[in-house]
Write a protein that binds this DNA or RNA. Structure first.
Lengths: 199, 199, 199, 199
DNA sequence: CATGAATGAGACTTCATTCAT
DNA sequence: TATGAATGAAGTCTCATTCAT
């Protein structure tokens, strides 16, 4: 079992799944990309499904490492911005992986790990919102709905960054949090709201 | 060409694609669901791909009808809320279709219509944001990024509603817009921000 | 589901399994022999294993029909001879099937139906032997062993007939029973035995 | 060429072929059982087929050694019983080998050695029968058929013994010969025959 | 002598599509 | 217009064998 060959297969699979999606990806594509023979693939992974799950597990682990619990020693918002920044950084380092994960694939069976991870994140956001409401710093709102919304914003934004080069991760993270915190409205006079938007 | 049979196939395809996703869906499932013979399917649609595209086209048309251009005769935000409400309403009326559309299926070839539609929506949002900034009612921000974020929030929220019953579409629309406009922060004292969140 | 096509596949499978044995037989051989397309095979049988089991089930059913319970209205030995004759007849009518069944295939999983059938026959023979001993017409012996022996003789003889033409089934059946009943020794003088044989 | 390693492979192959049959047996099973590396196998045997043939050759040689030509110095039947006893003994000593050999594997190509051996035995039996007939101690019969029958009985009985412990080989051999010589009928009064049996 | 990673031909099975009825 | 049996290209996976170390 050569770690090298395994690695080449994993990297190849990332590229292929990312480019073609899981269903259109074929073992043939992966082994061509990796430059190994057909049988070699099955020496390391017992099926196409398994290599995907392996990949997804890796992402979840890596992401969990980058998300740190917020403590009270420093400005909590700053810490959240840093969390988001690290996530964005990871997505940009591992664009193929990010693409696989963020393409909500209609296959709950296969993407369970990912779905569960996002569920966790949504719960975490919701919990934080509740805390903020109790502390009087977050306005009353449908926390479940809003948590989903924030997660969705995060995912869509990161997805849109995957094609860009030279992204400033910190300012992206700031924008995301700023959007979640303050929205886009510029409170000039004293109206309850005011912008104009097509949607 | 019986309109009836065609309709049954379309409805069947909605249910099947929604439940299994495009790739796992088989013609066999669709015709079983529709109660027609195998050959009949090909009398109405020349391929599995075609019926999907038909479905997607319908969604896009229906959605475009529900989204009305904002005019200056009334509170623009109110009009945007109504737009969002109509979209939410449609999603809840046609849950299967909504699910198909919102499960970003990693297949750009197949889902081009949808991708293009969302691209349009993102552009519309971005355009509105720019307008708002020029008018001094929207704060300076990375409009492209923020537009994506708002779209993502919208999509994720709607997706999360598809499993719920008895949703109050108007208040959902309000919450969504409120999130986009004002964020979640409750400006109590005078801090620039001050939430606390795990992410 | 055309009964015709199914029949052609069954007949083809018989020929192929008989000639090549189950393991060396390929779906390709069967469909070539049947003159149908690859997919057609799987319309009727869900695997290579299934068509074999179907075949074996048929044999067992047919054989069971040919073996009739011995009653007391007529000479029992005569009835047994007739049973054996009908079995031999069937084997000669369906030589391919017989060959498949009689080639003890080292695959208990696959040939369970057959193994169980032969087990039943062995038990039936053993039971009859016990009865005969009680009635004083069969000599004391290790009934289990002897039952196995008789069954083995039967199988081997039938197998050897499969290559022959113009077999007189009745006299074959008589010879088999004669062997089981009287053995080969010709009690001339009064010796307990007196043959001469290499084995 | 370590004789030891070769021996371990041979023993492993016996166990594996015996348990799984030739076709279901994989090189992987054999080398796992032998505790050697994959490549090592091919140092000693040039293919899976070859190790089987090696095994079969060994059996045939061993069996031929155990079967001694009957001479006229002693009771010939007694000598035949002893031959059979030695064969039974060998089968019980080498149960795996016996199982491989006695499972008529539908693969004439592979099992030619065995088939030829059994052919020889059948001919030997037939020859002895003819001799006996000429000498007036064996009754007139279809010698070819009967020879096959006796061989079949022998094979089936030995096969059935392979799962038993503590077998008395001499009495088994006696029973076998007794069956072949005298059958099972107990000549009480003066009937020509008179058993009763289900088959 | 021994190893075990790599190979690739070849087998099985699926399923969108066709076509004669 | 409807049917459903038949098709076969294409994909997944297995496993005996090779070969560089």
């Amino acid at each position: 079992m050569s770690v090298q060959t395994r690695g080449r297969l994993i990297e190849a699979a990332k590229r292929v799944f990312s480019k073609k999606g899981y269903h259109n990806a074929q073992i043939a594509h992966i082994i061509d990309e990796a430059g190994v023979a057909r049988g070699t693939f099955y020496l390391y992974f017992k099926s196409k499904e398994e290599i995907l799950k392996e990949l997804l597990k890796e992402v979840v682990e890596e992401l969990k490492e980058r998300i740190r619990v917020v403590d009270l020693s420093r400005d909590p918002v700053e810490q959240v911005v840093e969390n988001v920044e690290r996530v964005v950084e990871f997505a940009l380092e591992e664009r193929e992986l990010a693409r696989i994960v963020l393409q909500r694939n209609s296959d709950p069976e296969l993407f369970r790990v990912i779905d569960e991870f996002f569920e966790e994140i949504a719960n975490l956001i919701e919990h934080s919102l509740r805390l903020g409401i109790d502390m009087g710093i977050i306005r009353e709102c449908d926390t479940s709905l809003i948590a989903r919304g924030i997660l969705g914003a995060l995912k869509e934004i990161i997805l849109s960054l995957l094609d860009k080069e030279g992204v400033d991760t910190y300012s992206v993270a700031e924008e995301i949090i700023e959007l979640g915190m303050r929205g886009v409205w510029k409170p000039a006079g004293g109206e309850s709201h005011g912008g104009s938007s097509g949607v």
